[in-house]
Structures are given as structure tokens and as C-alpha cells.
Computed example of a mutant assay.
Amino acid sequence: MENGRLETTDVTRLRRLAEERTADLQRVKAEYDNYRKRVHRDRLAVREIAVANVLRALVPVLDAVDRACAHEPMTPGLKDIADTLWTQAGSLGLRTFGEAGDPFDPTCHDAEAHHVSPEADRLICTEILRPGYRVGDQLLRPALVEVTGPPPAR
């Protein structure tokens, strides 16, 4: 340092050091951002698994309430219980599926009976014996159905 001035090599060395520290800081920031995103994804996945497990455990309760509603006189108390249970399960993402007329899909339907119809060109769910349940894309229980389809090819 001559007369209080930095030599050119000192300025170059300091600039290079500042660039290295800036690059290090950017790398650490990117790693932290990736970590935050990964933790957020993991938390969502854990939540989805927990919700699916709770809803899977409630499926027999939903079936029992549905049977009670179908076979017992609908009292205000029973109606309130059924409505509240379905509302809360729905708010957690539970969806029922299985409608008469749906194409039969072995990945989400269990066929209890198969009826032959010469007019049919493919397997169709003709009666829903027990609804299926999903939460998001996850299948909790397949629908139990009767299907009608064409005669087997010989």
C-alpha cells in the first residue's frame, strides 16, 4: 500500500474473495430453499397419509350409519349424526364413487355378480352393492358392484 492506496493486486484479490463469498452465499441460500420446499412437501405427504388412515378407519362407521338410515325410521338425532359425519368426512376430502351405469373398472370396482346381456358391448356396473371411497387419488375401498356385460367370446 503506497500513500494510503491499495495496490491493483489487492483490489483484484478482494474482488475475487467477494465473488467467492457471494457464490457461497447463493449456494447456501439455494440449498436452504430446497430444504424448505422438501420439508413442505413432506409435511403435506404426512398429512395426506394421516387423513387417509383416519378416513379408512371411519369407513365401517359410515357403512353402519348408512345401514341405520336405510333400515330405521329417520329420527332427527340419526339425521343429525349422519349429516355431521358426512360433512366432516367430506371436509377431509372423502369422496364416494360407484354409480349404476359406470363402466366397470377392476382397479376400483369389485364385481360380486356378473350378468350376461346380448345387447351389452362392454362391462357396465348395473347395481352398486356398497359404495367405494377415495381421498384425493388414493383408493380407500373399491365399490362392490354387480356388472352386466356381453356373453363370453367362444
Rank of each mutant, 00 (worst) to 15 (best):
R36S: 06
T9I: 11
D42R: 08
A45E: 09
E19C: 07
L62G: 04
L55N: 01
V145P: 00
L58C: 12
R154P: 08
V54W: 02
L14C: 07
R27T: 09
L94P: 01
H115I: 03
H40P: 00
L140W: 03
D83E: 15
A113S: 11
R95E: 03
E31G: 10
L144V: 09
D102M: 08
V116D: 04
P152A: 09
G149L: 04
L14H: 11
D24E: 15
P73L: 08
L94A: 04
V145L: 05
D33R: 08
A82S: 14
L58T: 06
G149H: 04
A45V: 05
Y133P: 00
R56T: 14
L140T: 07
D24L: 14
R47D: 05
R5V: 14
L55E: 05
A18D: 08
G4Q: 13
L25C: 07
A89C: 15
S91C: 10
V11R: 13
P152E: 13
E99C: 02
D33I: 00
P118A: 04
L92V: 08
T9R: 15
L140M: 07
I128P: 00
I128T: 02
K79I: 13
G90Q: 11
R15N: 10
G77M: 15
P76D: 04
E112S: 13
G136M: 03
V54R: 03
P152S: 05
N3W: 14
W86C: 11
I128S: 02
L44P: 00
H40D: 15
E48H: 07
E7M: 12
R141D: 04
V65C: 03
C108R: 12
V147E: 01
D10F: 11
V145M: 02
